[in-house]
Amino acid sequence: MNASATDVLGGHRIVPVVVLDDPARADALGAALVAGGLPVAEATFRTPEAAAVLRRLADNDDLVVGAGTVLTPRQVDEAIEAGARFIVSPGLSADVVRRCQEVGVPVIPGISTPSEIMRALDLGLDTVKFFPAEANGGLPTIKALAAAFPQVRFMPTGGITADSAPAYLAHPSVAAVGGSWMVAGDLLRDGRWDEVAARCAASTTLYGLGAPA
């Protein structure tokens, strides 16, 4: 039986969403994530160097690295070849999901509607990415969707901050949240690795905080 996405995340409930176009900075970024106690990364396929960045991050045995913004089965293969241990997509592509299932890698497709959740269930999935979270109504929408689909777990991503994350994480249907506040573009560009590590460490304290669901 293939491992689930939540199994691969190893209990980490915040997933840093990394957009990095310089593979030479990947080693320092990986070290900062590990030092901050958040050794997880979703390296997005948004730049020409994405596969190289993912490969460098995956070379760090202390990191669990996945590929984000995966749009095609070919990108699935590229990501896995580079070392991705899970796949995240902004939308629900049956071709992408099936390719991930064929090769045995967990996939978290993006959804924003009940119909998309039903398609994900038809494909045998029970964990989905709610995206873009804030633009689609945020936590109130997740609560409404969870009431209709109690078997589904969500990873909301898009517009979530350190301030809003605790309320999401307090909801029992939220497996994890994706965010970039600890790996913000200016921090990566300026090489502020101590700040990345500090924000990661602060993020790990957000689990279980926030208003009751």
Results as ranks from 00 to 15, higher is better:
20 L>I: 06
61 D>W: 05
27 D>H: 15
145 L>Y: 09
103 V>Q: 10
190 D>I: 11
196 V>E: 01
105 V>F: 08
186 D>A: 14
99 R>A: 05
54 L>D: 10
106 P>R: 12
146 A>P: 12
143 K>G: 06
97 V>G: 06
91 G>N: 15
162 A>Y: 01
180 S>F: 03
98 R>H: 04
150 P>M: 04
159 G>A: 02
101 Q>G: 13
97 V>D: 07
72 T>W: 04
190 D>S: 15
158 G>Q: 09
67 A>N: 08
133 A>E: 04
141 T>K: 09
109 P>G: 10
209 L>V: 10
32 A>C: 02
135 A>G: 10
145 L>M: 15
61 D>K: 15
86 F>N: 03
18 V>Y: 09
170 A>Y: 07
38 L>I: 01
110 G>S: 12
160 I>R: 13
181 W>M: 00
212 P>V: 08
88 V>E: 01
157 T>Q: 05
93 S>F: 00
202 A>V: 06
57 L>Y: 01
38 L>M: 15
87 I>T: 00
53 V>N: 05
179 G>V: 05
46 R>G: 01
181 W>A: 04
131 F>K: 06
32 A>P: 03
89 S>W: 00
167 A>K: 09
88 V>A: 00
181 W>D: 04
188 L>D: 09
91 G>D: 15
156 P>K: 13
207 Y>D: 14
187 L>W: 02
35 A>E: 14
198 A>I: 11
208 G>I: 12
93 S>N: 09
205 T>L: 14
177 V>I: 13
77 D>G: 02
54 L>F: 08
97 V>Y: 07
106 P>G: 10
12 H>Y: 15
131 F>Q: 00
175 A>P: 05
3 A>V: 07
208 G>D: 10
50 A>F: 01
199 R>G: 03
9 L>E: 01
81 E>W: 02
169 L>G: 11
40 V>A: 07
155 M>Q: 14
2 N>P: 14
198 A>T: 11
27 D>K: 15
7 D>W: 01
37 G>H: 03
87 I>H: 04
65 V>R: 13
207 Y>G: 00
37 G>V: 01
21 D>H: 13
165 A>H: 04
63 L>Y: 09
16 P>L: 08
133 A>G: 08
10 G>T: 08
185 G>P: 11
186 D>S: 15
163 D>L: 06
41 A>D: 03
2 N>C: 03
71 L>E: 05
114 P>Q: 09
82 A>S: 14
104 G>D: 11
116 E>G: 12
105 V>Q: 08
